[in-house]
Design a protein around this nucleic acid. Structure first.
Lengths: 202, 202
RNA sequence: UGACACCAGUUUGU
DNA sequence: ACAAACTGGTGTCA
């Protein structure tokens, strides 16, 4: 199945589609359930949408600092605001964008394994055509050509792209969760952007 | 004589060589002279350097639009900014690059015939190895093999290559002007690039 | 296979 | 206004 998410109405925005969906907000959930860790969690059996965004202060300079934001819902305990550690790869905007998507799907797997989330469809929302195009178009070529870009060099951030690709396949194969990506304008991922920037300034 | 220009110091750039040369700037010229057209022109007796560049918006698409830029000096009246007309051949980057060189040398001949330029050495500066290699290497074979490329097909843009080749020979034979070509990185032909792009967006 | 151009698009920043 | 980080493509030759 296609990894591209297309909203029911072609012109729909996340505001229309996600927030109109009663199941998109974890925090409004009243039902709780004791998870494998002995703590109470909300239980979901629904389609969910997640915002992922990266930020990088001083991008392109040698003092760049990158961070990732993953947003499930207002004040959700599952939201992520994480710095990209200096030892953990290049401090670039692109790297942060990919890594945000990775964190989002890793969290989904964690929640599903924990039993506190039951879902069949995840929509990963990003404003990065770099990430969305990579996972919906380019990756199929890359898998066949040894991850080479048009200029004959190895694809930058290959490790994280492979990781993201693998996560999508694992969710599909092992958990029956189909992940699709939705490319949206910047203004619709502000909550995740906030979380990414907060991580940088902490 | 070789058509390749090699700067005195192998690592020199146009910035080093051209702009350090006091005669490279038409606009600083104080002496004027009435030309054949009854108008006043600057008179030169010097070696000159000219930047030529082509641009092509949407190159490779069916809505491509190409333009040429020729740069003598800041705000020189001799600078050229010209669109490649639709009826005047293929709208491609390569075509524009060659045509820019053609326009430059046609302008030189015009100025020399007008008597407003006296020169023995012209350096035509381009960032196109396609054009420079063609005029400094490949053309000698092409003249002997009926303008065939390696794959046995006729050389693309043959007409303009022949025209350019002829201009160089005419300048040499009829005007005692030796033309040499200098291949430089993109960043050194920005002024001509600007003129080419301006032509497209007009 | 190599090289030089010419573009298209997105994000991140100062 | 500038630049960096990234991808995709064509135009052409050897």
């Amino acid at each position: 199945m296609s990894r591209i998410y297309t909203p029911p109405n072609g012109n729909s925005t996340p505001d229309d589609v996600v927030y109109a969906h009663p199941h998109s907000d974890f925090t409004n959930m009243q039902q709780t359930h004791m998870g494998n860790d002995g703590r109470f969690h909300n239980i979901w059996s629904c389609d969910i949408a997640i915002l992922a965004d990266g930020a990088c202060a001083g991008n392109g300079t040698n003092y760049a600092r990158a961070g990732m934001g993953v947003y499930f819902a207002p004040d959700s305990r599952y939201n992520i605001s994480e710095k990209l550690e200096a030892w953990d790869g290049q401090q670039t905007n692109q790297h942060a964008e990919i890594r945000a998507a990775v964190l989002a799907l890793e969290k989904v797997i964690e929640l599903v394994e924990d039993g506190c989330l039951q879902t069949e469809n995840v929509v990963l929302i990003s404003d990065s055509s770099y990430v969305v195009d990579a996972m919906t178009n380019w990756v199929y070529r890359w898998r066949n050509n040894g991850w080479m870009n048009n200029r004959g060099f190895e694809v930058t951030n290959r490790d994280d792209f492979e990781r993201l690709d693998r996560l999508i396949n694992i969710l599909d194969d092992d958990f029956d969760v189909s992940v699709r990506l939705w490319l949206v304008p910047r203004c619709y991922v502000q909550e995740a952007d906030r979380l990414a920037k907060d991580a940088i300034n902490s």
